[in-house]
Write a protein that binds this DNA or RNA. Sequence first.
DNA 1: GCCGTTTTCGGCCCGACTGTTTTCAGTCG
Length: 585
Amino acid sequence: MSFNAQLADLFERMAKLLEVTGANAFRVNAYQRGARRLRELSEELEPIADDPKQLTATEGIGKGLAEKIAEFHRTGRVEELEALRAAVPDGVAAMMDIPGVGPKTVATLWKQGGITSIDQLKQTIADGSLEDLPRLGKKTLEKIGKSIAYAESAGQRARLGDALPLAVRIVEELAALNCTKRVDYAGSLRRGCETIGDIDILAACEDPQALAKHFTGMSLVDEVLLSGKTKTSIRTDTGMQVDLRIVREDRYGAALMYFTGSKEHNVVMRQRAIDRDLRLNEYGLWKAEDAERMDEAKPVAADTEKVIYRKLGLSHIGPELREDRGEVAAAADDELPEPLTIDHIQCELHAHTTTSDGSLSIEELAAEAKRRGFHTVAVTDHSAGQVQANGLDAQRLKRHAARIRQINGKLDDITVLAGTEVDILADGSLDYEDDLLAELDVVVASPHSALSQNSAKATERLVRAIENPYVHIIGHPTGRLIGRREGLSPDMGAVIAAAAEHGAALELNANPWRLDLRDLHLRAAVEAGCMIAINTDAHGPADFDLLGYGLLTARRGWVEPKHVVNCLSTKALAKWLQSKRQGDQ
DNA sequence: GCCGTTTTCGGCCCGACTGTTTTCAGTCG
């Protein structure tokens, strides 16, 4: 784990323990913010760990955190954290993770109830001996018990690819009602986050009661969690929590902005409003004096997000950018990245056919790509190392390439490239000889095995593949599977620097299990001058639809059309593929 | 603990919902 990541974990732990012990909430928040900053930092703090001046130049790190960083660097530990650990049993801190249980409840359970673990809490709820504690009545305990049971059975965040189709289905069903004026999904889903805690749906409606009733009566509803005048929550049969909020139509934009978040983005926006003697909340942007009487007053702006941003002196910030990663400053200077849309994507450079583990023939793949409006599709079947995927040995690859070229000669309006997705072996060598790779139009090199090797080895491995003169694209560079497998954790700065130097593109694999590279690494890559390849890794016709997940992730990574090889014209793409070859001759 | 064209103190986003109270504390987003 990197120095920054270790510190981020440490600060998060501090925050949690401080919260349980009833520390000042703003102090807790400072540690949380510090941890978050550390995770987003692209440069390592270790070299400057003993220089408070340089450390405090980072936003969110002041004198206190700088001292902790120096202490950790010097001694490998932080005294205050050790003291907190000694004072608070592990099980007590763990109770904070139960939904509906916050610091106050944990403190009551621990100090007054003697509960020091989730297991003990579960038992005590079952035998009913807890009900004498203040503010812990029968219903509350019942709810906590349910939360524990649910967390034990599921608990994990949903992948974007599972949550988005579900949200679209719910939005479409609610939109079909006569009384519905507007309805959208908001929250982390609208921001295109790779995993989603719960789905937020926002609606404006002439008959809120009817809408809420329809919502709780949908066939996918397993349990109604709460239902108020403006907020209703359900759990679906797949275990996903869905919140519906109903707002006035003329306040819709303010609500959409508010519920899209992120929380951190909202904080910056609210502060920006205050700096201009305005107030921003979920009901609109107000003059400061009107914020107290929103019922009678007229908002400065409320019906669309765009107007609210404009009234705050900002160009419209796309939902994927709203993470407090510098987007507000960029919008103020009119320097936001150009939004990458599906119309910019003109080719697919990573696809499989029946020759390895795909479901389409070469002709069918070409036809599907053409139907999607692409000028080029690359056939990149697996190399021999992928035995389970029917990977090709050298002889089969030669015959396959010849057949691809033969078919390409007969097709109009679509170019089919002869390529491969060659394995990057554990030591960074490739699964084919260089002279065979040199015969192909496009080479995608990907790690598929030895995905738990250490960081140093992974870095060396990927850099070596990047240095190979015949490699155009590094496919799904870390090999992670979201929520299932962590994949490689190389020194991404070194990998990116190598890719920039050698002109290899890094892939953003659009499959929602992968989304690899992830958003923050993409941003570091384009800032370093790397090209990005956004591919669906199609194994069948429907996989081309996965491109949408790639676009969301790319926008989160501040990737613009000019950074993406799939946005190149036929001619420019041919030139790019060639340049790699010529540059090394 | 962080931060500063109201800078070394005094703020730090704020409203909905629930359950336990009987006017509000705790949690969540």
